[in-house]
Write a protein that binds this DNA or RNA. Sequence first.
DNA 1: AGCGGTCAAGTTGAT
DNA 2: ATCAACTTGACCGCT
Length: 302
Amino acid sequence: MIRWGLCCLFRKAPIKFRRTTAKYLSTLSHVKRMDYLSEICMYNAKSLFDALRFCRGNGIYAFRINSQILPLKTHPQIGYGIESLPRATEILDLFKKCGAYCRRHNLRTSFHPDQFILLSSPDTDVTSRSIAELQYQAEVARWVNADVVNIHAGGAYGDKAKTLERLARRIRRLPLTVRQRLTLENDDRIYTPRDLLIVCEKLGIPFVYDVHHHRCLPDGQGIEETTDLALSTWNREPLFHISSPLTSWAGPNPRKHHDYIDCQDFPRYWLPLDITIDVEAKAKELAVFKLIQDLGRKTRTE
DNA sequence: AGCGGTCAAGTTGAT
DNA sequence: ATCAACTTGACCGCT
């Protein structure tokens, strides 16, 4: 059975997550700043519970948690520890309640730190900030029982092979809480599945296969072969990504995501697999519903 | 109440 | 050398 995954937000369901900016926070006194952050973190923890309840009620059993769930947690100037927020225990308990809910109802959660999180950079300031961010996301992952913190390999820095070696070294040295959850995903500009599968196999890190990125940046290996190789890197339920191009595959920028998934883009080979598939589409939960429906209709009429 | 400018971060590639 | 793209809604502050 496929476990369908929703990414971070909702199009129609009235569930929102709040954020703030470093600029605004820096205009507040320390006390006011901590109060404000506490309020947002509390709100987000409650929203996460709402999100999980919505997903469970609608047949969506995987949910990707936004990196900003605790906004600006590792910002170099205004970063903070959860324990220094007012009502920290209440916030923590809410997150742990989300974790218990996931365990009880077989929901899977994951994190996907964004493009600035780079373990492969030659700049050690960049990597140490990235490691701090990964530690924060892994910490929240522990509270909510998330088993994936998924990143890309980063830039080429003029030499992909050297960069991948540097990446492997940094991954080996990560704290266990991070490394146990870390996964690598192919991107649409630089690192293909073929590049990353080698690293993943070598390090025992699972590979998140994004077939849309693979189509944007092919490597001569087919979808079926890549799927099999990706599956073999997982010591738990595999996680894959699907999306469709905004305009068309022939258009100027097929990398941009569409509101929905064109079920022609969905690899038939994936249909019988026991995997999680995150649906990366701008119509969010509506896109998940539509894809499930379209695939059902299609397979019935064939 | 509504709208517009703005938002932590790095890297690449177009100009 | 500079700057948009990547991705992206939600925030604050001003009208």
